[in-house]
């Protein structure tokens, strides 16, 4: 009986880190987008900054999704 602890540990680590990173970045993105919208009445640079930041977050998530599709298609 030969249990591949290394692979199991790797799956554990990668899943944990990647999930938390993705969920964190995406949450920042939607928080930024929503705060950008509520503050836009007041105008100012803060909302522009928030919106730019949120777009960057979404772009990062889109890249992650693209990488996911790449993993599915490439054996």
């Amino acid at each position: 009986m030969d249990i591949d602890w290394a692979a199991l540990g790797q799956v554990f680590g990668v899943s944990l880190v990647a999930t938390i990173a993705l969920v964190g970045v995406f949450t920042l993105g939607i928080v930024g987008a929503s705060s950008g919208r509520t503050q836009s009445a007041h105008g100012g640079g803060a909302s522009v900054l928030a919106r730019t930041g949120s777009y960057a977050c979404f772009a990062l998530c889109a890249a992650a999704v693209a990488y996911g599709i790449y993993i599915i298609t490439a054996p």
Partner: peptide
């Protein structure tokens, strides 16, 4: 594995979005 990841991710996302408007974030989620 998935349970622990989901647990921490749920905590994180609730914490990060605690000041945001629920209606606005729901669409993103």
């Amino acid at each position: 594995v998935a349970g622990l990841a989901a647990l921490l991710a749920t905590r994180l996302t609730y914490r990060a979005a605690r000041n945001a408007d629920e209606q606005q974030t729901a669409k993103g989620y």
